[in-house]
Amino acid sequence: MENKIILKAENISIGYSHKKKQKVVAENISISLEKGKLISLIGANGIGKSTLLKTITGIQKSISGDVILNDKKTTDYTSLQLAQQLSLVLTESLPPSNLTVFELVALGRQPYTNWIGTLTDEDILKINEAIELTQITHLSNKKHFEISDGQLQKVLIARALAQDTPLIILDEPTTHLDLLHKVSLFKLLKKLTHETQKCILFSTHDIDLAIQLSDEMIVMTPENTVQDTPCNLIEKGTFGALFNDENIQFDIEKAKFLFKNL
């Protein structure tokens, strides 16, 4: 049987080490990311979602335990090899430039191009494929600052697709979007995982939507970090422990958060 697991971490502790001091953010985290799955990462602010993503992507070292990406530790990859295994969509805004949408997506091919960045026919094929999959063909000649936040998010996803990696990681891709665009973005991610057999991991605060659309969820609570399908997580009552506040409670039957004393 073909190995479906792309990334695996067992019992890792994450956090920051400053000189000799170590600050552990979360411990005993075990996750595994499989091909063709859309996986969401949820948790309250400050629980360590970003730290976990940074550790998985090799930006930051784990305090203990290894992250294994395709049978090799992430720390053993060179930055170029890592760039061919995982691509990122970040929350930070882009610096000022004249980049067009096409040029921006084309930058995703950098790990494969020569010293001066010449695009081969294969590169252009991959770029056009990514642009078509994300349905941004009509935008490709526009400057990146001329399009809306929702469109830009799709462009950044297209760039990650063009990078042609088995794993794509998105940090809060729905933050600045309205409900309509949130839903359409989630649908796009779902479509991409199923059509391209990539694994997509994203962090989000839109828990209701994530429950409905994700194949699996990683939930970080102050006590522990759990990975399972949304249905199992609801049954186990994991969501109830998400926020440490009696005014916010999770209704298992409706699969929704309810607010009291408003």
Partner: peptide
Amino acid sequence: SLMSIKSLDALLLGENYAKSLGLN
């Protein structure tokens, strides 16, 4: 400068994206 053209293009996306594209 000529040797830096590719890295400069990557830097148009900011430091973190540039690193994620395999830039040293």
